[in-house]
Design a protein around this nucleic acid. Sequence first.
DNA 1: GCGACAG
DNA 2: ATCTTGTCGC
Length: 267
Amino acid sequence: MEGSSKSSSTFHLSSDDDHKKWLEIQDSLKRKLITEDDYNWNLGESEEEEESSGVQVLKYIGGFDISFSKHHPSVACGTLVVLDFKTLDVVYEDSSIVTIDVPYVPGFLAFREAPVFLQLLKKMQDSSHPFYPQVLLVFVLLMIDGNGILHPRGFGSACHLGVLADLPTIGVGKNLHHVDGLTSSRVRELLEAEDNFNVDFIPLVGDSGNTLGAASKGSFKPIFVSVGHRVSLASAVEVVKRTCKYRVPEPIRQADIISRDYLRKHH
DNA sequence: GCGACAG
DNA sequence: ATCTTGTCGC
């Protein structure tokens, strides 16, 4: 009698109503999604590009991640960092311990992460520290520890958080979320394809024919980059390349290290 | 029916 | 996400 629906899944929502509600929210937010570059900025590739015709050179890049407590699964620490795009030094960091009771359900990651993310973002924007006004002027990009359009409904957490914040975001996944025929073995095939031997990122084209993201082919285990909001895939990949000292790009890696560290000390 | 399933 | 030490190599 009780709990008769979809009980075969390890993951589940408290009710079918919640599931429907979440789908509707994703669908609604997705209407605002922009999957191309719509900011007037560049990466400062060549000297002559800089400061010309009102084009902003990307000076800072943000990163966001959450770590969870070992023994208290609902206790978490969200961390927002800002790095100098050129030197990759952390120039701003803020962490917050929170309680997250929303369950993790594949395909709905953003519902767990959005509250802390928005809280940290607002705190940065409202702060009176002399650094922040500068950030507001030149800080235009955020990396999220989750996928963008590489998602069952084309609206992963990077898209979700990007639309909520109305900021450009890049999705970076450390594991593949199987979607549109893109399985681990399929990706392995693509990575080993001969005509890709000289590239460091290969496009991920699903069965639908759509390019949903790109996979790195540098390390044994690839990372998966996809468009979040207001950024093209080409730009997203370029930015990720330029911020990778190790497998995981620095904004994500630093946010991960700092959040884990903060959680350990404050709990 | 069974397996797969970002963090 | 988290559980987890040493160990091999530059």
